[in-house]
Computed example of a mutant assay.
Amino acid sequence: MNEFLKNTWKHRAHVVMALPVFLILFFIMYVPMAGLVMAFKNFNYVDGIWKSPWNGLDNFKFLLASKATFISITKNTILYYLLFTIVGTFLNVTLAIMIDKLVFKKMAKTMQTLMIIPVFISYAAVQFIVYAFISSDTGIINHMLGTSTRFYSAANLWPYILLVVKIWKDTGYGSVLYMSVLAGIDSELYEAADIDGANSWQKIFHITIPSLIPMITVMLLLSVGSVMHSDTGLFYQVTRNNGMLYSTTQVIDSYVLNAIFSSSNFGFVAATSFFQSIVGLLLMLFANTTVRRIAPENALF
């Protein structure tokens, strides 16, 4: 304890600078966790969180009440996570390398700015952009192709539509993160490769990509913790919460949001969030343990 206090005083300037961040994290991320007790209570507004009666695991039983629905939304949640993660990571890395080394080298700054813009567009606005393209009456796609496809009743098409929207919105920002790693690669490695007669593709596969693997691993490990969470704006607003699309578009988060609006059962919401967090934590621990055994230097802890 004395050593801890001595080091804290020694680095007091750094501690003071970091204190606001710690306080923000504490009050925003940790204090609200006390509300998880709602997962085990029959919450009502009169008694509030602390005085509402306990109901054990009834809220979790409600989550599992409809086995078919639970299996469907869980399957959709996991499959969309895998789809977005695999395709998104590939495109992020590819685009970062293209900008840094190949096609867009001379206009890298401009490209970075253009790619980040979609991140700041809310899904409340994105849904109108998507509607403008796929509306059955006035949509750009039907108008250009001379068709009358009713996209908002064709559930089988929405995995592709959501993938395109997700890529358009997030890929640019993701590639910028990888570009920061590319900027830190020692130029002497490329100079040595030039001396050895390596071409551009050989330098990419033997220097660039291996240098990105630690960042890719960290990003994947961090994302595993959110495997049971989905972007509510994407699945609720872009799809316009259309019941005809639920078979392929309803995920756990959008299901919970519908439950809130229909029944205001906040105990069920807390139970679902608790379930998602526990599953995410276990998956992240498993993934990190696996990475630590294979490549310890790339593990989070």
Rank of each mutant, 00 (worst) to 15 (best):
K75A: 11
S72E: 13
L222R: 05
I97A: 05
Y30C: 03
A270K: 01
V46N: 09
I161L: 11
K166P: 01
V224L: 02
K169H: 14
D231Y: 05
A34P: 03
F128H: 12
N156L: 09
G146R: 02
S262H: 01
F275D: 00
T89Q: 09
L25V: 08
N199P: 10
T149M: 05
S277D: 00
A34Q: 08
K41D: 06
M215C: 04
A39I: 10
T147L: 11
N44A: 11
Y123F: 15
V21P: 05
I294L: 10
I260Y: 10
T110Y: 12
D196T: 11
G243T: 15
L189N: 06
L91G: 02
L36D: 04
S264F: 12
P210E: 00
D137I: 09
Y80L: 00
S187Q: 15
S263Q: 11
M38E: 07
F4T: 12
A108F: 04
K106D: 07
N59L: 04
F60K: 04
K61P: 03
Y123H: 07
L212G: 00
T290I: 14
F70A: 05
K109N: 14
L245S: 06
G233D: 10
S200D: 10
Y236W: 12
A13K: 15
G35E: 08
V15E: 03
G48F: 03
T272S: 15
N76L: 07
V37W: 06
M38I: 13
F22H: 00
P32L: 10
R293A: 02
M98E: 12
I260H: 03
I140Y: 13
S223W: 00
K203C: 01
G243K: 12
V218A: 13
K203I: 02
T232P: 07
N258M: 03
K101D: 01
V176N: 04
I86A: 10
W50R: 06
L145I: 06
P210K: 01
I294Y: 09
W54R: 02
V126E: 04
M17W: 10
Y255A: 13
L285A: 07
K6S: 12
W54E: 07
L157Q: 11
I71W: 14
T249A: 09
F62C: 04
F43W: 08
F27Q: 05
G233K: 05
N288V: 03
K105R: 15
A132F: 14
G184E: 14
A259R: 00
K10V: 05
G174D: 05
A299F: 05
N258L: 00
I209H: 08
N288A: 08
G174S: 05
F90T: 13
L163V: 10
L79S: 01
A271D: 03
L114M: 14
T171S: 13
Y152F: 15
I116Q: 07
G280V: 01
A270D: 00
R150F: 14
G48A: 11
A287Y: 04
S277Q: 06
Q127P: 08
L102T: 13
P53D: 06
K41S: 08
D253W: 07
I185V: 15
T208P: 00
A96E: 05
L282I: 13
L163F: 12
N288Y: 01
V256H: 02
L64D: 06
A96I: 03
T77S: 15
D100H: 14
V37Q: 04
I252Y: 06
T138G: 02
Q250D: 14
T94P: 02
W158H: 03
G174R: 09
S153D: 14
